[in-house]
Amino acid sequence: MTGAVKDKVVAIIAEQAVLEPNEVSMDATLEELGLDSLGLVEAIFAIEEQFDVSVPFNANDPSESEFDISNVSSMVSAVETLIANKGA
């Protein structure tokens, strides 16, 4: 399950960054991947659609949002948490 979530999140980020999934390393920041603010908002929308979750994210204050976008790994963890809470 964990691997599947990771692969899907990476695929979504890769698509927005116009990269191949294998070019997206887990410790890369969105800035390093070349993802701008609109790309991020699109990626979050794709994550919500893919996993049927609601991502708590405000573009005005990314650091204060509950959804941690520090790097790819933190985003995968955040998505996993959202999915787990959905089932709870």
Binding site: V41, I44, F57, N58, A59, N60, D61, E64
Partner: peptide, 17 residues
């Protein structure tokens, strides 16, 4: 994702949309 859920606080450090 640029809208505030709790208020409009222009120029304030804690503004959020």
């Amino acid at each position: 994702r640029v809208m505030s859920k709790d208020g409009c606080r222009p120029f304030s450090a804690n503004r959020n949309g």
